[in-house]
């Protein structure tokens, strides 16, 4: 089922949570709503689910107006950040809940329920936990049960609100890979909310970057990372060096444009090359710090009054053998320039 969001706005008192959002989510895709906290992403998800009502605008499911449809009639599966499992029910009963509350005519028989729940628990690889209570499970297990419970009613849309937010890094990484595989298997239109750019880039088919209630960019993970449409997206997706009013010389050459007025150049730390000798267009910098961090080495260079962050591979650092205090040369490989940038903070 496709979802169309048209001119949705929502305020909470004086706070504008969503400002005239337009978005369409095609059938079968896994979309990430990405943004910092307070950007309105969860509100948007809850409006799609019908748990929050918009001040204006429409939500269409498969082209039909669903704006005033009650949550229980929307056929959405919702997965909460803190799982929201029914604490007094066993895992089995949790998953069976959606089937047991169906009207008598549609309700499957006990045998059918048993079969279906067992199948779902196998799908999330937790069938051996059927008789446990939620309090006896770990966080990762709980979230998988929550997912199985949402899938039990065969929803047309799966909505996940920061599904991995409460888990530790290792489990989170496992689970998001697992979610990606699951989505490839069941192919249900899915939307998940996250503030973690790595998560969005890794899991989603498409990423919607939100900031202050507005959409900054919509695109595939590669598009939003490689071609950020706005300074905000550039800064939000990964580390970046920001240069104010320095768009001339080698920078302009690389950016392939000359700028007169106020402009800001953005360069990713791994898009800067460090050399020993002053080639054409290279700038001079003094090495301030050298931090090896896992597979990369982070180098801080002092160039005039600015600090420039550079990421090198370990091999490159072994070749260069940079030492603190040394004078070296650097040259950006890729620069993106935005004009008339207002002051912005993340």
């Amino acid at each position: 089922m496709s979802i169309d969001i048209q001119n949705i706005s929502k305020r909470f008192g004086p706070f504008v949570a969503l400002d005239n959002i337009n978005l369409s989510l095609p059938t079968g895709e896994l979309t990430a709503l990405l943004g910092p906290s307070g950007c309105g992403k969860t509100t948007l998800l809850r409006i799609i689910a019908g748990m929050e009502s918009a001040d204006q605008g429409q939500v269409l499911f498969s082209g039909n107006d669903a704006t005033h449809l009650h949550t229980r009639d929307r056929q959405v599966g919702f997965v909460f950040q803190h799982y929201a499992l029914f604490r007094h029910m066993t895992v089995f009963e949790n998953v069976a809940f959606g089937l047991r509350v169906k009207p008598r005519k549609e309700r499957p028989s006990d045998a059918e329920i048993r079969q279906k729940v067992t199948h779902l628990l196998q799908l999330v690889q937790l069938d051996w936990l059927a008789d446990r209570y939620p309090s006896q499970l770990s966080g990762g297990q709980r979230q998988r049960i929550a997912l199985a419970r949402a899938l039990a009613v065969e929803p047309k849309v799966l909505l996940l609100d920061e599904p991995f937010g409460a888990l530790d890094t290792k489990v989170r990484k496992e689970l998001r890979r697992w979610l990606r595989h699951l989505h490839d298997e069941v192919h249900i239109t899915s939307v998940f909310v996250t503030h973690d750019q790595e998560e969005a880039l890794e899991v989603a088919d498409r990423v919607v970057v939100l900031n202050k209630g507005k959409i900054e960019q919509i695109g595939t993970p590669d598009e939003v990372y490689s071609h950020p449409a706005t300074p905000f997206v550039y800064q939000f997706l990964g580390n970046v060096n920001v240069f104010h009013s320095r768009i001339h010389g080698s920078w302009a050459e690389i950016a392939k444009q000359e700028h007169q007025g106020e402009a800001v150049a953005f360069v990713r730390p791994h898009d800067i090359e460090i050399t020993r000798d002053a080639g054409q267009g290279a700038l001079q910098g003094t090495v301030r710090f050298v931090h090896p961090i896992g597979p990369v080495v982070r180098v801080e260079l002092a160039h005039q009054s600015e600090t420039i962050e550079v990421e090198l591979s370990r091999e490159r650092q072994q070749q260069l053998d940079l030492r603190v205090g040394e004078v070296t040369y650097f040259r950006p490989r890729q620069v993106q320039v935005f004009e008339d940038v207002q002051d912005f903070v993340i």
């Binding site: 599966g77 929201a84 509350v101």
Partner: peptide, 13 residues
């Protein structure tokens, strides 16, 4: 109210 919202999204009256 998470659990109640979960119940409603699962179709409970």
């Amino acid at each position: 109210k998470d659990e109640e919202e979960a119940a409603i999204s699962l179709g409970a009256s």
